[in-house]
């Protein structure tokens, strides 16, 4: 048995068998009347709902794929907007110690504010349209990203700068030649964390003022006591997050082939 655990087949098979067992137990618990069907729809019911959601849609026309694509578009808009602003700003702040010192409390504070607590403000500022949702995702991603980029610059090993200096690289070119490539891995790690934040924010952001998106779907389902739809929605968000995160990790290993293998998956 111990010898089996290490093999590749076992690595896939063991969690799969365990998952199947848990699902079977759930199905059985509902059938036996230990769990109420309305509150804990069994896996067999969920499969049916998933097919309904994917083909007809709830409300009719809003298919699962459509909702997922709306959610994905919002996340990407907020996430990419945050990166575009936070990376240059973080590089600037990180390489100016005075600026770093001056902004530290602000960055720390804004990062700590629970993004969804800004929801009422966002609604007042930007209305109930797309802008307020993208703003909330962008806000959450931005501060996480900014503090990671600042730290990335601060943590560049001074020995690398000194090594470049012994090679007659002038001070004004150290940034492009050394600082930027040296910070890339930490910036990428920051992006992965920020994306996770985006996924946490999106559901809340979609709960008000819209009928599209996976967050809206989950909320709508509650009004009709469709716990099965809520669960499918959760599942869809989870899968979307997993796909996006692993795409980012793959991009990372492609862009930074020098990183030790497994680095991207671990962080």
């Amino acid at each position: 048995m111990d010898r089996l655990i290490g093999t590749r087949l076992a690595r896939f098979l063991i969690p799969a068998v365990f998952l199947a067992l848990m699902l079977a137990l759930w199905e059985f618990a509902v059938a036996a009347g230990w769990l109420r069907r309305l509150l804990f729809p069994p896996p067999s019911r969920l499969i049916g709902s998933a097919i309904e959601l994917a083909s007809v849609g709830v409300p009719v026309g809003n298919t699962l794929l459509y909702n997922a694509s709306v959610t994905l578009a919002r996340i990407l808009a907020g996430f990419i907007g945050a990166l575009v602003l936070a990376i240059p700003l973080g590089l600037l702040i990180g390489s100016r110690p005075l600026l770093d010192r001056a902004t530290q409390p602000i960055v720390g504070f804004c990062r700590s504010v629970a993004t969804l607590s800004l929801l009422p403000l966002a609604l007042v500022w930007f209305g109930i349209g797309e802008t307020s949702k993208i703003f909330l995702i962008g806000y959450g991603c931005f501060w996480v990203m900014l503090s990671n980029v600042i730290a990335a610059v601060r943590l560049v090993d001074p020995v690398l700068l000194n090594a470049a200096r012994t090679m007659d690289i002038p001070e004004h070119r150290l940034f492009m030649r050394v600082v930027l490539p040296a910070t890339l891995p930490r910036i990428a790690a920051g992006a992965r964390i920020a994306l996770g934040v985006g996924f946490m924010v999106i559901v809340g952001a979609e709960m008000i003022g819209t009928v599209t998106g996976l967050g809206a779907l989950i909320m709508e389902a509650r009004t009709f006591y469709r716990t099965d739809i809520t669960m499918i929605g959760m599942l869809a968000i989870g899968i979307l997050g997993l796909v996006l995160t692993s795409a980012l990790a793959r991009l990372e290993t492609r862009l930074m082939p020098w990183l030790p293998r497994g680095n991207a998956e671990a962080g």
Binding site: L160, A182, L184
Partner: peptide
């Protein structure tokens, strides 16, 4: 200042990892 034909080998990890 540094440079100008003064080569240096550091204790460790001074290669550019990228």
């Amino acid at each position: 200042g540094p440079g100008g034909g003064k080569g240096m080998v550091f204790q460790q990890n001074a290669l550019f990892p990228w």
